[in-house]
């Protein structure tokens, strides 16, 4: 049984249908990459999973248990098991790095302050920011902010980490420092769903690639299969465009 099971999820922004029946499985320790043209609904899948957009129909199961996104309590519970990192980092601008990382674990999850702070320092050192514990977001580069955001997500000890185009807003020379961190996490067996346009990176870290188009999954399989020998015309066209250069 997959750890995360998404079945026929439909979601709308107003009257615009952004997901038209998406199904997706993620096993424990698996890295699944969502790829596809912009507007295909990749990021929306992640937003639905963390309860930022309520699905109209379909089901989501985590660890075999169905999640009712209309229930505030269940949304809260699911957010305790998943953490998301956004394209624009979304660090709290009024807090320094340490406070960004420790706020929710200490004040919301009520974990022991000392233990959380030790963990936060370890995580920040691990993403190479041990020197920036008390810097504010506006003093950091995009790549540094994104690494703090990853540390902040990890401090929540999620079962599943969702990464929403985490390198898309970065200057090219800052992309690798963030990818290095994700590569490490994949190696350690972190369960992740990542939305990415970095095809070389997807090929390297993903166990499975899910190609989306117009709110639907059109192909799914191992990276080599999907990226090198796509079955559908739409996928061939998409990869032809982005892999050519």
């Amino acid at each position: 049984m997959p750890h995360l099971e998404v079945r026929d999820v439909v979601a709308r922004y107003g009257s615009h249908e952004v997901l038209s029946g998406v199904s997706l499985d993620v096993d424990r320790g698996e890295v699944v990459a969502l790829v596809g043209p912009s507007g295909s609904g990749k990021s929306t899948v992640l937003r639905v999973l963390v309860g930022l957009l309520q699905p109209v129909s379909g089901s989501v199961r985590v660890g075999g248990q169905a999640v009712d996104y209309r229930s505030a309590g269940q949304v809260r519970a699911i957010r305790n098991r998943m953490a998301i990192v956004f394209q624009q980092y979304n660090l709290f601008q009024n807090m320094d790095v340490m406070r960004n990382v420790t706020l929710a674990p200490i004040r919301i999850k009520r974990r022991d302050r000392r233990e959380v702070e030790t963990l936060a320092v370890a995580l920040l050192e691990r993403v190479g920011l041990g020197q920036k514990l008390h810097a504010f977001p506006d003093e950091l580069s995009g790549g540094q902010q994104q690494r703090v955001a990853i540390a902040r997500a990890l401090a929540l000890r999620p079962e599943i980490l969702l990464l929403d185009e985490v390198t898309s807003a970065l200057d090219p020379e800052l992309v690798n420092e963030v990818l290095d961190v994700i590569r490490d996490l994949a190696r350690e067996g972190m369960t992740m769903i990542l939305v990415s346009h970095e095809m070389a990176f997807v090929r390297e870290v993903a166990d499975r690639v899910v190609m989306m188009d117009k709110g639907q999954v059109i192909e799914s399989g191992p990276p080599a299969e999907i990226l090198d020998a796509p079955r559908t015309e739409r996928a061939r066209e998409f990869f032809g465009k982005i892999l050519r250069h």
């Binding site: 660090l91 709290f92 929710a104």
Partner: peptide
């Protein structure tokens, strides 16, 4: 900023 806070409960 509000969304990030929401996802952290």
């Amino acid at each position: 900023q509000v969304e990030a806070a929401a996802t952290m409960n």
